[in-house]
Design a protein around this nucleic acid. Structure first.
Length: 570
RNA sequence: CGGGGUGUAGCGCAGGCCGGUCAGCGCACCUGCUUUGGGAGCAGGGAGUCGGAGGUUCAAAUCCUCUCACCCCGACCA
């Protein structure tokens, strides 16, 4: 492509709305154009990179026997009703009506539709295993789109689904996907890791996320440097360092108006670790009191699992009715008929302080088991930095990360709801065992920029760069400069390389700045100065390393550099 | 949904409090000349319903009311 003819609207200044690096660079490099919150147009340069990513994903999916589909975006209500997600997905789903008034949605994901196809066509255990995938736009009306392409309301995803006859088959399909995702991300030049994750409203048993460390990321990953333990903060466990405490007498103290941990801890001059949060929850099975150490936070994902059902905090009237006191002054002591669940960090603790079930009073010196009953100890808290690794007891780190992929063992939730059953070898009807595997194309692109950029612009990994070679004639009016540039351009294109040539009649400085911004891995600089020595320059965007090569066999040298860079990515 | 911020030319912004030569600056763009190894110089030029609607006023970018959009923090998030 000749830059004189290309639509690559680079900008010197950064649009004010862009906060994160990748967003700023993509706007400045003329890759994307904002349309509405969380909705972007992809301009030619941005689209080329997305298509590169798409190509890598397609190659790798096909390699494991995946078969590509293209499913509809418009989807009718009934199949979503069958799995309960028409209600469950709530406002996240874009909904519309057709002219007859029938309900439709823009599909936010495609489990239902793929499962419905399987329900009709897969009838025998002989028809499996199957891996079906598509690369397509998803629509989700996010509560808050943000960070450029990181969380959009419309985005590209490769989603695949596996169909197996048994759990062993699912394990195999899941493992294939884990391996293929690792290959995809590696080929895209990402430094990533996997974490155990929550399966959320997808349902299912096991799930892992593919994460890229980045301060721009919205997820928090808990990492152990010494043993490699890694988990999403939502599901991570840890051993809390024990807080030293001694046996005390129980005393009731007057704490007028002191409701929060901070207030009580300040008023009584004790650290928050000595306090115990007593949280009254209403689950579908009835009221439950949850006990957490004062400096800890209740982890709702874990609580959900422990309760085995939906729950919510009790309303003020319910708190009063069940405990006789206002929230802030409640506790487990003397509480009858309410299940009490405590976080593991409280096991063996002594001298605790919590509400007395009497307004403006707290109890001190409490000991679980001695002063109140605990029906169950379990892990309920969110990990804090410095907590100890559950596997090797080294201190844990918590880092921000971008979730680029997520794989799930779904089981039979969708196949049962949609009647996707098959006949096994014994002639029995059984539901198909499904897995679901997503990977975000924009998130790969964003992550690549976040991980590979410098003050001057993007530094593309060659596998996903919009072009491989950027020919930069410094003065296109100069005859020899022009002649050589045209020659390399033709030769390289003839050899199937992807080449951008800056044939614009601009000053050298402008061309350099644009080249750095766009970030093509191999730059070929052709100027009068080095031509006097009979040389041209090959410069690597990543390292800044310059090779001066003879002007007559430069094309071979350029090709060799591109091939070497590409080979390094496998 | 709660809190905060911003809407003035393609991009970045000033002006707003104190209504009246107030439609402005820089970049980008167009023309010409000079320039050509890290975002050139000079001269000339085009471009904006001041987010929208209503109101106050002789007069509104500026004051008032409503509204829309975008960004950030939080809640939420397959």
């Amino acid at each position: 492509m000749r830059l004189s003819k290309a639509f690559i609207p680079t900008q010197k200044e950064t649009p004010a709305e862009a906060e994160i690096l990748s967003h700023r660079l993509m706007l400045r490099a003329g890759m994307i154009k904002p349309h509405a919150a969380g909705i972007y147009s992809y301009l030619p340069l941005g689209w080329r990179t997305l298509r590169k990513i798409e190509g890598i994903i397609r190659e790798e999916m096909d390699r494991i026997g995946g078969q590509e589909f293209l499913l509809p975006v418009l989807s009718k209500r009934d199949i979503w009703e069958k799995t309960g997600r028409w209600q469950q997905a709530g406002e996240l789903m874009f909904r519309l009506k057709d002219r007859k008034g029938a309900d439709l949605c823009l599909a936010p994901t495609h489990e239902e539709i793929f499962a419905a196809i399987a329900a009709g066509q897969i009838r025998s255990y002989r028809d499996m295993p199957q891996i079906w995938y598509q690369i397509q736009t998803k629509f989700r009306d996010e509560p808050r789109p943000r960070s450029g392409l990181l969380r959009g309301r419309q985005f590209l995803m490769k989603d695949s689904y596996s169909f197996d006859v048994d759990v062993g088959g699912l394990d195999q399909s899941y493992r294939l996907h884990r391996e293929v995702y690792q290959r995809i991300l590696k080929r895209c030049g990402l430094d990533f890791f996997t974490v155990r994750a929550s399966s959320g409203i997808m349902g299912g048993s096991e799930s892992e996320e593919f994460m890229v460390l980045s301060s721009a990321g919205e997820d928090k990953a808990v990492l152990c440097k010494s043993c490699g333990y890694a988990a999403n903060l939502e599901v991570s466990t840890s051993k809390a360092p024990a807080y030293p405490c001694e046996t005390e007498e129980v005393k009731k103290v007057y704490t007028p108006g002191k409701k929060t941990i901070e207030e009580v801890s300040g008023y009584l001059h004790v650290p928050p670790q000595r306090l115990m949060k007593s949280l009254l929850m209403i689950s579908q099975k009835g009221p439950v009191m949850v006990l957490i150490r004062g400096d800890h936070q209740l982890n709702e994902t874990k609580a959900q699992q422990v309760f085995g059902c939906e729950f919510r905090p009790a309303e003020p009237e319910e708190v009063l009715k069940l405990t006789g006191a206002q929230a802030g002054f409640i506790g487990p002591v003397g509480l009858e008929g309410i299940e009490i669940i405590a976080d593991l960090a409280l096991k063996g603790a002594r001298g605790l302080i919590t509400g007395a079930n009497e307004d403006d009073h707290h109890l001190t010196g409490l000991e679980p088991g001695r002063d109140f009953k605990v029906d169950r100890y379990t892990d309920l808290r969110t990990v804090l930095p410095g907590d100890l690794c559950p596997e090797c007891t080294s201190p844990l780190d918590i880092s921000s990360a971008i979730e680029v992929g997520h794989i799930f063992k779904l089981g039979t939730k969708y196949s049962e709801a949609l009647g996707a059953t098959f006949l096994d070898a014994d002639g029995e009807h059984r539901p198909i065992i499904m897995g679901s595997y997503g990977i975000g194309l924009e998130r790969i692109m964003v992550s690549a920029i976040e991980q590979h950029a410098d003050k001057d612009g993007i530094v593309w990994p060659i596998t996903i760069a919009p072009y491989q070679v950027h020919i930069l004639p410094l003065n296109f009016e100069h005859e020899e400069v022009r002649r050589l540039s045209e020659r390399y351009y033709d030769v390289l294109i003839g050899r199937r390389f992807e080449v951008l040539m800056d044939d614009r009649n601009l000053r050298a400085g402008t061309k350099f700045k644009d080249a750095d911004l766009i970030g093509i891995p191999v730059r070929v600089t052709i100027g009068e100065r080095t031509l006097k020595e009979g040389k041209i320059e090959i410069r690597l965007r990543k390292t800044g390393k310059v090779y001066k090569v003879d002007k007559n066999d430069a094309a071979d040298k350029i090709a060799a550099v591109v091939e070497r860079l590409s080979a390094e990515m496998h």
